[in-house]
Amino acid sequence: MIKVVHYINQFYGGIGGEEKADIRPEVREGVVGPGMALKAALGNDAEIVATVICGDSYFNENLETATSEILEMIKKYSPDLFIAGPAFNAGRYGVACGSICKSVQENLGIPVLTAMYIENPGADMFKKDMYVVSTANAATGMRQAIPAMAKLAMKLSKNEAIGSPSEEGYIARGIRKNIFRPDRGSKRAVNMLVAKLRGEAFETEYPMPDFDRVAPNQPVHDISKATIALVTSGGIVPKGNPDRIESSSASKYGKYDIEGVMDLTEATYETAHGGYDPVYANIDSDRVLPVDVLRDMEKEGLIGKLHRYFYTTVGNGTSVANSKKFAAEFAQELLADGVQAVILTST
């Protein structure tokens, strides 16, 4: 019998939503939440002996201590296999799944597996360290995710050969393997070219790695004369969310005039973000968008000027493509308005 320990967050653990995201790790015997379906999919050769549950914010605010606390909990069950998630497009959950898997792999030397959406920041962070099953971006993909996870997990624990990412459904790890093909490279290349010219489907044998890095700009020389703009992914909006920015998977951003606004108050601003407990930001939005202290610094002459507009969106399951598009657009405006530096805050 293969002993499995499963990790899930406070939401899938049935403890609560964002208001419970700060709970510390706890362990329960047997299956909880998605563990039920996972247990069925794993079959009779494996048993989920325990489930560790932790709040997403607690984990991410205490990466090191949370990881070691959880590792100790897992160790007690001396499992043969460790599975975390699926995390879909929940960023903090994905980071938690990947961090714990990595630690279990290094410290306990057993096979580990997690699953998430390819745009989850946890995927880029950990895909090279472990098998990350590729899932849909939301929990509606649970039915597809579970069997794929179970299948790969069993293969790993039985030490069977693992196929390519597309065969097994995991996110490419950047590992290259030498294999023999019936046709020579030159023939395959010509076939690919012909398919391309005909407009037919073809698959490259070497996808270009995505190295989208932007070099840092020169620093600001005289900050006391500079115009500084505020941008946030924390969803701060004027009270009532006039442009109805979505609480998750935002399709738009807002641009708001803060001329004469000295302080963001409970009566005037709030957050539209659905991915963190909004209580603190709703009481005082300066906790996310520091308008009050920048006004003080403006008065004291520490900075030249706080830009008249701030830009905001909700960074909660929002696609990379949308975020890029929003910022590419308003960055041009910032440039045209003579903004010399940006402070971007994220929750």
Binding site: N217, K324, A327, A331, L335, V342
Partner: peptide
């Protein structure tokens, strides 16, 4: 990255 890309330093 998009802000940095247009040449404005960002923190």
């Amino acid at each position: 990255k998009e802000i940095e890309r247009v040449g404005i330093p960002v923190v």
